Computed example of a mutant assay.
Amino acid sequence: MRVLFWFLAVVIFVPLALSIARGMAYDGSWRDAPRHSSGLAPDPLKTPEAIVQIYSARAFNWRGYVATHPWIIVKRRGAARFTRYEVVGWGGGQALKVNYALPDGMWFGAEPSIMAEYRGAGVERMIDRVEAAIRTYPFKDQYRSWPGPNSNTFLAHVAREVPELRLDIPANAIGKDYRAWDEPVALAPSGTGVQLSLLGLAGVTLGIEEGVEFNVLGLNLGIDILRPALRVPGLGRIGFPEDVARQPETVVD
């Protein structure tokens, strides 16, 4: 038990300490936090093909030490602009927001990264499925930073409904494991395995994309087998980086 205690202390608290040591993405007021374009989204007027991009950035202020905020943008073939979907816990109205910010905007001072990108003729069908999944999201009017439902709960719902995204949501995406009390068993968010979760407070996920991941009070710890790495709180992963193995993919008819 002593060995187990020290092992857990190292793999949980050390990554959290390193995440805190990185500092917050922005420590000023949300009113003047940078939200300009990051330059990651292509110019829709110069890119006629259909596109799906999924973004993630460190959460605002102290939440960025332990959690991330994701969103989805889509553009149909020939469209002149992107549509952005996400869940936000402030601003009035329902939590599910459409075009709340620029498609690839800085998230209140935090630089976003692309988790997944799909382009091509077949992406039109993917957009249909993504938008259908968004319409069926069950917590449109609810938001709790911990343990959920929140923005990562929303992304996990869409990922389960559209398994062709094969989305591996990182370990520091607090809320991704939130499940209603009467639906504790589901597909893993990637669609490549299964998940058991009790209100996002305790559970386990087994999947080809996720590997093996345990959830203890909303903090996730596991092993990514496909791309060897530890899945840890705060930092997300320690090991081979996700973006080396998962390049933007093209979906064709």
Rank of each mutant, 00 (worst) to 15 (best):
D27A: 09
R129I: 11
F154N: 13
R125C: 05
T205P: 04
A57V: 01
R63D: 13
A110Y: 01
R81Y: 13
I127C: 00
G92I: 12
L198H: 03
L167W: 06
Y178E: 06
L235S: 14
L167I: 12
G39S: 05
A95P: 04
P189T: 15
V74A: 03
V123A: 05
V11T: 09
V244F: 01
T192F: 07
P170S: 12
N172Y: 13
L226A: 15
E213F: 00
G236I: 03
G218I: 04
R119S: 00
L187W: 12
S37E: 14
P163L: 04
M126C: 09
V3Q: 10
E183C: 02
A9P: 07
W62A: 02
V123I: 12
S38H: 01
D104S: 01
A159V: 05
I72T: 07
A188R: 08
D104I: 06
L96K: 10
E117I: 02
Y118Q: 06
A50M: 03
K176P: 05
A159T: 15
W6Y: 13
P138Q: 09
F82W: 02
G222C: 14
G218K: 12
F5N: 02
G236S: 13
R63I: 13
G191V: 02
P228Q: 10
A21D: 11
V66H: 08
K140Y: 11
V52D: 08
G175K: 06
M126H: 00
F60S: 08
L201Y: 04
E210I: 10
W71C: 06
G207V: 15
D177G: 14
A67W: 04
H36I: 11
A59H: 01
W146F: 10
A59W: 09
A188Y: 05
I169Q: 03
